[in-house]
């Protein structure tokens, strides 16, 4: 919270659940109960089959690095060059994010590397979902949601 200079999202009635979810350190997606399509960003209907019958569920938080750029121009919320990234969530949808706990270099940022979600408090009301390289965990460890 020492760098309060990101442009903050302003939730709408259709997206409020997502931002309530990140506050509770959960990455919430929506899924159509008719055709099973999982989608993002949030909306109260299925963009695949137009059904209004959709449900919210917690994603695993696991993703892979789909693509990125490393911005060289100074941004008040970042120290030095930083990656703006696209990640493919395990459940299918893609989202924009930043990669944390990782050097912001082409050498460190390898496409398709496994990632897991982190939540960063950027204002009183908003935690942003960011992603970090997956920690090498003991076999069978399923505690990827633990991010503190």
């Amino acid at each position: 919270m020492d760098k309060p200079t990101r442009n903050l999202p302003q939730p709408t009635p259709e997206t409020q659940h997502f931002w309530d979810g990140t506050q509770a350190e959960q990455l919430l997606l929506q899924r159509c109960t008719k055709c099973t399509h999982t989608y993002f960003p949030p909306r109260p209907f299925c963009p695949s089959c137009s059904s209004r019958s959709v449900e919210v569920y917690a994603a695993s938080g696991r993703a892979t690095l789909a693509s990125y750029v490393i911005n060289q121009r100074p941004h008040p919320a970042f120290d030095g060059p930083y990656a703006i990234a696209l990640v493919d969530l395990e459940e299918g949808p893609r989202m924009m994010t930043n990669i944390v706990e990782c050097e912001q270099t082409p050498e460190a940022l390898q496409l398709d590397m496994p990632l897991e979600v982190r939540f960063e408090q950027v204002s009183e009301d908003i935690k942003l979902p960011l992603f970090a390289p997956t920690r090498v965990a003991p076999a069978g460890d399923a505690s990827v949601g633990e991010t503190k």
Partner: peptide, 8 residues
């Protein structure tokens, strides 16, 4: 504004 802009 919600799902891209905050990431810089």
């Amino acid at each position: 504004g919600q799902f891209e802009v905050p990431f810089g």
